Simulated scan of single mutants.
Amino acid sequence: MSSATPQPRTLDHPDLAEIRLEDVLHALSDPARLQVVHYLAHGDEASCSAIDLAVSKSTSTHHFRVLREAGVIRQVYRGTAKMSCLRREDLDTLFPGLLEAVLRAYETRCVRRA
């Protein structure tokens, strides 16, 4: 009988050197993805279900995948929950000021709409 411990599920993330500006800008170009980034910018990490997006579950999954594959967020499994956090330090290292400018613009737009 084998006593091998099952390996935790892992997700692919680009290494710091693989993160490209055009991929990050594309990921940040969608309002739902901006909502996710804004939410994560104001906390440590969150499960995908904690962020209330006005889209279907499959579309939400797509948005999180785009953000992860672009290097904007990091996702890990904790039990059955997929937890996400913003790769703020990595993005600030590669593109100083970009994330803050995007978040400021998003917040300004939200205030104007209110």
Rank of each mutant, 00 (worst) to 15 (best):
M83Y: 00
C85H: 11
A50C: 07
D90Y: 06
S3D: 15
A32G: 04
R74V: 03
C48L: 12
G97H: 10
L98Y: 07
T10V: 15
L91G: 03
R74C: 04
S49D: 15
H38N: 11
A4L: 12
A27P: 00
P31T: 15
T61Q: 14
R9V: 10
P31R: 05
V24H: 03
P31W: 09
V55W: 06
L16C: 05
L34I: 14
I19S: 11
H62C: 03
L40R: 00
A50D: 11
A70W: 06
I73W: 02
Q75K: 02
S84H: 08
L34N: 12
P6D: 06
R33W: 05
A27L: 10
R104M: 08
H26G: 04
D44G: 05
H42K: 12
E45Q: 10
A46E: 05
S29H: 00
Y106C: 07
S84I: 08
D30C: 06
V76W: 09
T5I: 15
Y77F: 13
E69N: 15
K82N: 07
C48I: 13
L21T: 01
G79V: 00
D30R: 01
D12S: 08
S56P: 07
K57L: 09
D23T: 02
T93K: 15
I19T: 02
R68N: 07
P96K: 09
E69L: 15
R68W: 09
T5W: 02
G97K: 14
C110W: 07
A114Q: 14
D12N: 01
H13Q: 05
H63E: 03
A81H: 12
S47A: 13
Y106N: 09
L67K: 04
L40A: 04
T10N: 05
E107S: 04
Q7T: 14
V66Y: 01
A50E: 12
V66M: 06
E22Q: 10
T61Y: 08
H38E: 03
S56E: 14
H63T: 12
I51L: 09
D30L: 12
L16A: 06
P8N: 13
R88H: 12
V55I: 15
H26L: 11
K57T: 07
F64N: 07
A54M: 01
D23N: 11
R104V: 13
R88V: 15
A27Q: 08
E107H: 03
L25M: 12
V102D: 02
Q7N: 06
D90N: 07
I51N: 10
H63P: 00
E69S: 14
R113K: 09
D23P: 01
H26Q: 07
S29M: 03
S84D: 08
T59R: 10
